[in-house]
Nucleic acid binder design. Structure first.
Length: 747
DNA sequence: TTCAGAAGGATTTTT
DNA sequence: TCCTTCTGAA
């Protein structure tokens, strides 16, 4: 049991050391961003094992993402080089899967249940709508999905929902909710919320199970406690019923998951929940410069619902935050890509572009690609959410559990094999009448020969396919995947399609087989492979070594970067127009706080005056985010240059006119900046080739400006009626410029 | 049943 | 703008 005898403790400050070495009873570690929360909790795990206070396998640590868990595990291993057994570090959801795979039968599920993600849920809801004849309901699938999830997080059954909810559509939603739940149950499937709820129900109903887990896990640690919701809270209560050794770390200012039921009250109530709790506050920040901290603190102090902490650091003041107002989203992306380019040239790495909503990433991707900067995109359509990957996994799921209606519906006609809507409706009807699953209905129908000949043949082929893939699942993981894909004809169809997209899909599938192979070597079972794929989160793919990362603010939690670009700081986008109630606004502000505190050295805040939504030009000019005004003024420097405002061209207004009107001719006329001969030459050549006059030339520049969203005016010459404008396109070579231009058409 | 073209809706944030 | 869904013809 003798390890390094706590040598590593010398890296901690007094408070952290206390938090680590004080191991009796419940403890709440309240800490600010960058104070080493996760570090403290990791050291605590190491300390418990190292000092022989607790055996590794009897420690349970819960983190927010799988990636965080992975990291924590490897950090513990680094601290204790002779670790015989590893503590269990995982997310709430994966812990629940573990438990349910053992005991699901106690609460009426089979152990080989399937886990549904958001897309699957919507698929289920769609059939539910059909079943209930709600096809023209004005309740969107999305809304229904969100509401059901919300109700579940409150632990409300459909009946309770109908009673408790003030919603005008409560009757309808309650019916949908009930049917949805029955459908899942019939399919032996659960959604994300069910994982928590069912585990909670299991522990509540079965004392022996509860005591077994409660007894076994001597120490329980929770990271990001401020984001736990009601079902998670219940789990915590149940799991600590015996030993009461619970340590949680959290920061109420970083609670950003209210929309999925995170209850900030959990952290605010901790002292009353656990009467003997020790409270430790960590206020020293090890991440950011003082300027950044002051900005973040200034901002978040506008929130009413918080306990309040004062963050301080020994680090230098640092640069002021830089503000940039762009004319439009392209100008914003252009500015950011230029700055990134500069910083990379200076040898910086670890830059992050953080935004509120996923769709904002596109512009930045485009511009980064143009200047050949590799980047790491987190979120959006991640690998495990690609259609072909989900299809492939669905095949495996059906092989494991043919009663999984959700996956079956997904693949029964994918690739097309002659089982269309009519047949599906029929199967659904049969399944409902017979109170069985689609698979059950299919088998029975085939046996009793109730289908028309052609349909019968198609269904029979599908039936045989599944039977065959059920033989494959005995094989090693990757082989069963590979063989199933071959047998299904899925790859064959893609091969025949022979397009760029289909090639990519085939590559993705190969990648999936490779992953499966790796996992097979590590001894994963098929079930574990599928579970992992289902619970995999976006942030798990995060590659720390990438120089530039793009992600939503939510995904950035727990990460840190030397340089952060917080983009899209406009009213309506951030704070989001759907989050303007007082409560939501505080959460948005916390989100901004999270964004600011990711930065170590520098922050750029950008917004754009105009932004397109759904390809439509926004009709109004955006005002800067109110959050920008809440950051103390002396910490911010406006670096929107006059040149940048020159780029602010109204559509359909001539470049020259705007130019004169906004800045006055004398100011820029004749002023020359660094010239790029090749570009100028090209523009001249262009004007000859296309026989464009100077006027047209000007409108050419205008188009360039509109299409590309950037381009700096180097030189402007006023020759009476004509304007001669030389435009520089910084950051890109002439070849790229030509490529970009080749896509444009002159009006 | 499938395909192609047209129309219409969608964007918060995540396990 | 882009993606899904609807419609009608083959």
């Amino acid at each position: 049991m003798k390890g390094s005898s706590g040598d590593y403790l010398k890296h901690l400050n007094e408070e952290q050391k206390f938090a680590v070495t004080h191991t009796e009873g419940p403890m709440l570690i309240l800490a600010g961003a960058g104070s080493g929360k996760t570090r403290t909790i990791t050291y605590k795990i190491a300390y418990l094992i190292d000092q022989g206070i607790c055996r590794a396998e009897r420690i349970l640590a819960v983190t927010f993402t799988n990636k965080a868990a992975e990291e924590m595990r490897s950090r513990v291993e680094a601290l204790l080089t002779h670790l015989a057994a590893a503590p269990l570090v995982c997310t709430f959801h994966s812990f629940c899967v573990r438990v349910l795979r053992q005991h699901a039968d106690l609460i009426g599920y089979r152990r080989d249940f399937t886990i549904c993600d958001r897309e699957d849920q919507k698929r289920v809801l769609k059939t539910v709508y059909q079943e209930l004849n709600l096809r023209d309901s004005n309740l969107s699938l999305h809304k229904a999905c969100a509401t059901i999830s919300w109700a579940k997080n409150k632990n409300w059954s459909p009946k309770v929902y109908r009673k408790e909810s003030g919603s005008s559509e409560k009757e309808e939603i309650s019916r949908i909710y009930g049917a949805y739940q029955r459908f899942l149950k019939r399919s032996n499937a659960v959604d994300f919320d069910d994982l928590l709820l069912l585990t909670g129900r299991l522990l509540k109903k079965h004392r022996d199970v509860r005591e077994r887990y409660g007894e076994w896990y001597q120490y329980f640690l929770v990271d990001e406690y401020q984001d736990t919701n009601r079902p998670q809270y219940d789990l915590i209560k149940n799991l600590t019923c015996v030993h009461q050794n619970i340590s949680v770390v959290g920061d109420e200012d970083q609670s950003i998951y209210g929309f999925r039921g995170a209850d900030i009250g959990n952290i605010l109530r901790f002292e009353t929940d656990f009467a003997t709790a020790t409270i430790v506050k960590l206020e020293q920040n090890y991440r950011s410069n003082q300027n950044i901290l002051d900005a973040a603190t200034g901002l978040v102090s506008n929130n009413v619902h918080r306990k309040g902490k004062v963050l301080w650091t020994q680090k230098p003041t640092g640069e002021p935050l830089e503000l940039f107002a762009a004319p439009d989203a392209r100008g914003e992306a252009y500015f950011v890509s230029q700055k990134i380019y500069q910083h990379l040239q200076e040898g910086e790495k670890g830059l992050a572009v953080l935004y509120r909503t996923n769709f904002q990433s596109r512009q930045f991707e485009e511009f980064l690609r143009r200047v050949d900067i590799p980047y790491n995109l987190i979120g959006g359509v991640s690998f495990y959410h690609r259609k072909e990957i989900k299809d492939a996994l669905a095949y495996l799921r059906v092989a494991v559990n043919p009663d999984d209606n959700v996956s079956l519906m997904r693949i029964i006609n994918e690739p097309p094999r002659g089982i269309g809507r009519v047949t599906m409706d029929r199967l659904q009807q049969m399944a409902r009448d017979e109170r069985t699953t689609l698979w059950g209905a299919l088998c029975k129908g085939l046996e009793e020969n109730v289908f028309p000949a052609r349909t019968h043949l198609a269904l029979e082929r599908f039936f045989k396919l599944i039977r065959r893939s059920q033989e494959f699942i005995e094989l090693p993981l990757h082989l069963s995947l590979d063989k199933t894909l071959e047998a299904s004809g899925y790859v064959e169809v893609l091969r025949r399609e022979d397009s760029e997209g289909s090639h990519n899909r085939i590559l993705n599938l190969k990648e999936l087989v490779t992953v499966a192979k790796e996992q097979a070597v590590q001894g994963y079972t098929l079930q574990e492979f599928l579970d992992q794929a289902a619970l995999r989160s976006e942030a798990d793919d995060y590659d720390q070594s990438a120089a530039v990362s793009l992600m939503t603010l939510h995904n950035a939690k727990g990460l840190e970067f030397p340089i952060v670009f917080l983009v899209g700081c406009e009213e309506g986008l951030f704070p989001h127009s759907r989050s303007l109630s007082e409560e939501d606004l505080e959460e948005e502000r916390r989100l901004c706080y999270v964004g600011l505190t990711r930065a170590q050295k520098r922050i750029y805040l950008t917004y754009s005056r105009r932004r397109r939504f759904f390809g439509r030009e926004g009709s109004e000019t955006n005002s800067p985010s109110r959050f920008l005004k809440e950051i103390p003024k002396h910490l911010v420097r406006d670096c929107s240059s006059p040149l940048a405002s020159l780029e602010f061209v109204q559509p359909n207004v001539r470049f020259g006119e705007t130019f004169y009107r906004r800045r006055g001719q004398s100011r820029f006329s004749g002023k020359t900046y660094d010239s790029v001969e090749s570009v100028r030459g090209f523009l001249q050549e262009l004007s000859q080739k296309r026989a464009v006059s100077h006027r047209r030339f000007v409108s050419g520049a205008e188009i360039l400006h509109q299409k590309l969203g950037y381009g700096r005016i180097l030189h402007v010459q006023d020759t009476g009626n004509d304007l001669k404008i030389t435009v520089k396109f910084p950051g890109i070579g002439i070849k790229k410029f030509l490529q970009s231009y080749a896509r444009l058409k002159l009006v």
